[in-house]
């Protein structure tokens, strides 16, 4: 069985080479996706090998260059199929296993895009390009990962015209929802489980922002992984986590009794998850 042990982190325009390398070792990750990472790629690869003993290689980008993707799975072929300034859609292939699509997203922050409608409009475009790539490739097993700069409950994530995510496995497993004579496919979003004081994990979000405005969530779940229903049974819910430490170093800090993300390291917390690839079953020819 091949398991994609994935680590995703927005490193806040910093290299964080030691942190990424140690975190990769601690989580036993074999697929690393970094946003806003400024490290020298060769130096990071050297360090990853030093920490983990595994040889990682960088996936070359064609058009989408906001993410760095490294993997140590040497027979994993990752090909960019669709490019945009803000997202890339990749096909992941390992011989003997069913191919999947991986979308990696980095939407602008709300400080740069003031209107939530901008994020919404963007998700409509993204959804359309995912559907077209699924149609062209014949692959419907799609995983969507990134820094959406939106919470799971915001319109761009929930609305049927956009990414149409649901917190419920049961609902997602119905496949799609009909609305006004059109069918809208679901994404299952396991990140909903991290909301609230007694929720899953050690943090209530991946991003903390204390804004002086009437609506203040404090904790935001901007970094998310979404799955098409076809991949739900391959996804290990227990392994999904928001990381709050690396080695002895905390990625959060507490000021006046309030815990928040420690921006001295990064303004986002990393997430990790595991997804098992399904074996490809070939039809055997019957012998007369």
């Amino acid at each position: 069985m091949t398991v994609l042990k994935t680590l995703f982190w927005n490193t806040y325009k910093k290299p964080l080479v030691e942190e990424v390398s140690l975190m990769t070792k601690e989580t036993d990750s074999n697929l690393i996706i970094l946003i806003e990472n400024t490290s020298d790629n060769d130096y990071l690869i050297e360090n990853l090998e030093k920490y983990t003993g595994d040889k990682f290689f960088l996936i070359e980008s064609l058009v989408f260059n906001k993410a760095k993707i490294f993997t140590s799975i040497n027979n994993l072929k990752i090909t960019e199929k669709f490019g945009h300034g803000r997202y890339g859609i990749y096909e992941l292939a390992i011989s003997g296993y069913k191919n999947i699509l991986l979308g990696v997203v980095h939407l602008p922050s709300k400080q740069n895009w003031g209107s939530t409608l901008d994020h919404f409009g963007f998700c409509v475009e993204l959804k359309s390009d995912i559907l077209n790539t699924e149609l062209n490739s014949g692959i419907e097993s799609t995983i969507l990962l990134g820094d959406f700069n939106m919470n799971p409950f915001e319109s761009g994530m929930v609305n049927s015209g956009a990414l149409h995510n649901t917190s419920s496995r049961e609902i997602a497993l119905t496949g799609s929802r009909n609305y006004q004579n059109k069918s809208f496919k679901y994404f299952y979003n396991p990140m909903w489980n991290f909301f609230g004081e007694f929720s899953k994990g050690k943090a209530q979000g991946t991003h903390y922002y204390n804004t002086y405005s009437p609506t203040n969530y404090h904790w935001n779940l901007y970094d998310q992984v979404l799955l098409r229903p076809e991949l739900i049974d391959s996804f290990d819910e227990e392994k999904l986590d928001i990381l709050t430490t690396v080695g002895a170093k905390k990625l959060t800090k507490t000021i006046k009794g309030i815990t928040r993300v420690d921006k001295d390291i990064s303004d986002h917390l990393p997430i990790k998850f595991e997804l098992s690839l399904k074996k490809e079953i070939k039809n055997e020819e019957s012998v007369a």
């Binding site: 209107s115 409608l117 919404f120 409009g121 963007f122 409509v124 319109s155 609305n159 015209g161 006004q180």
Partner: peptide, 15 residues
């Protein structure tokens, strides 16, 4: 080409 209807999609540009 796709049409963007306000009842379905509140695209920022359409908006």
């Amino acid at each position: 080409t796709s049409s963007i209807s306000p009842d379905q999609i509140f695209h920022s540009l359409a908006d």
